[in-house]
Write a protein that binds this DNA or RNA. Sequence first.
DNA 1: CCTATAGTTGGATAGTTGTCAAACAATAAA
DNA 2: TTTATTGTTTGACAACTATCCAACTATAGG
Lengths: 110, 110
Amino acid sequence: MRLLPHPSTENIQLTEVLRALSDPVRLEIVIRLAAAGEMTCTVAGDDLGVHKSTASHHYRTLREAGVVLTKQEGRLKYMSLRRDDLESRFPGLLDAVLTAALPLPAGAHA
Amino acid sequence: MRLLPHPSTENIQLTEVLRALSDPVRLEIVIRLAAAGEMTCTVAGDDLGVHKSTASHHYRTLREAGVVLTKQEGRLKYMSLRRDDLESRFPGLLDAVLTAALPLPAGAHA
DNA sequence: CCTATAGTTGGATAGTTGTCAAACAATAAA
DNA sequence: TTTATTGTTTGACAACTATCCAACTATAGG
């Protein structure tokens, strides 16, 4: 099992995180990771409407911004949200973005 | 007093807000507005290290993203954060960004 | 070894962005 | 009316971005 290069928690920059999340394709990937937890690039990038190489660039952007953690096992690469790291660095930020991005669950009352 | 064109609250888009906030110069402007409330463009843009025309473009970006409200009085333009609009549209988002962007106040205990 | 799978890399391209400089517009004040 | 102030617009330009396609790498399985 190999870990790809990532920024350390204290080196995650706010503007880079915001920028990473500001692209609709990347935001969708983050939403999927939030809902399903760890998943391979293929699954995360399924039906995104972009070429696989484009998706690959987005994976890298998310990883380099410190939003996701990527580890390789065999020929698969697993991505997951760095929830704890982001929460400790920027409390409430990821939750606020996910709340804003997700449709309100059915049955939720205002 | 004239109001410049702004997106309505329900038309504020998450990705556009995130993108607007992802530039260091614009984030600094937002931080100043959060600290001092309404202020003129000149004051908001003082010592940003960019040309005034560059700052002007950033004002427009913030306005068009729905982050700030701009009204003209005489030859001055006053900008203010659309805190309530952003809070109702994306609860907790602006606060999380400001908390992340601001240095911890002296005397605050972890 | 051969083939399929998973994902990255590099090239090309079209569009966007941040920046400055210079000119402009609009209001206020002398 | 003339001048100063406030901010925008336009043009230019370099840098960056999102995208696709084709080629590539690496691992797994026959």
